[in-house]
Amino acid sequence: MDLLDDSEVRRRLGETPQWRREGDEIRRTVTAPDFPTAIRIVDEIAVEAEKLNHHPDIDIRWRTLHLTLSTHDAGGLTEMDFTLAARIDEIAASHGG
C-alpha cells in the first residue's frame, strides 16, 4: 500500500475532522456515555478491523477510548488508515461518541 503525501493526508483529515495527525499516525479520542458502551464500540471496531485486516491501537480508560492508526508495514499513513478512521467515526456516532 502506498504512503499518502502530506497534501493528501491534509485533504483526508479534512474529511475526518475528529482525527488529528501526530507524525506518521492519526489519533482520535472517543468518549462513550458509559463503560459498557465503550466496550461495545471497541467490539464493533474490532469487527471492522478484522474485515479490513488493519488494526488500530486502542487504549481504554473507563468510558474514554484513545485510538491510533498507522500502516506500520508501509511506514506511515495510507488510504487504509483513513478508510478505517471513517468507519470508526460512524461506529462512534451511532453510540453517541
Rank of each mutant, 00 (worst) to 15 (best):
D89M: 09
W19V: 10
P36D: 03
D6H: 11
A93D: 05
R40S: 13
D81A: 10
D5P: 10
A93E: 15
H95M: 01
E8A: 13
E15L: 14
T68G: 10
R40M: 09
G14A: 08
R61I: 09
E25T: 14
A32K: 00
L13A: 05
D89Q: 07
F35T: 14
L52T: 08
M1R: 05
I58E: 00
P56T: 07
A49L: 12
H95Y: 11
V42R: 01
I39Y: 00
E8N: 11
R12H: 12
D43M: 11
N53D: 15
G96Q: 05
T31G: 08
A93N: 08
E48Q: 05
D81P: 13
E15R: 05
I60A: 02
V30L: 02
I39G: 01
E90W: 06
V30F: 01
H66R: 15
D34M: 07
L65F: 03
H95T: 07
E90V: 13
L4A: 01
A92T: 13
Q18R: 15
G96E: 10
E44I: 02
G23C: 04
S7A: 15
V30T: 02
I88K: 13
R28P: 02
S70L: 04
W19K: 12
A93C: 13
R61S: 15
T37N: 08
R63G: 06
L67A: 07
I91D: 01
A32T: 00
A32S: 09
E48F: 05
R12I: 03
D81M: 05
I91M: 00
R11I: 06
E8C: 08
L69V: 15
H72W: 06
W19F: 04
R61P: 05
T71G: 02
R27L: 11
D89P: 09
M1L: 09
T16N: 15
G75V: 08
H55M: 06
D6G: 07
D5V: 12
I91C: 00
T37G: 09
A46G: 12
A49N: 09
D43A: 10
E90C: 04
L84S: 02
I41S: 01
D34F: 03
V30S: 02
T64N: 11
T83Y: 01
M80P: 01
T16D: 14
D81F: 10
G76T: 09
A46L: 07
K51G: 02
P17S: 13
N53F: 04
D59F: 06
R40E: 14
H95C: 00
Q18G: 13
G14F: 12
G96M: 05
S7I: 10
M80I: 09
W19T: 12
D73F: 06
V42L: 09
L4C: 03
G76A: 12
T31D: 02
D24S: 12
T78N: 09
D81Y: 08
M1G: 11
I88F: 01
V30H: 00
R27Q: 10
W19Y: 13
I88H: 06
E48V: 09
A92V: 12
H72N: 04
D73K: 08
L65T: 00
T71D: 09
I26S: 10
R11H: 15
R61H: 08
L4Y: 01
R21K: 14
A85M: 10
T68D: 03
R10N: 15
I26M: 04
R21V: 04
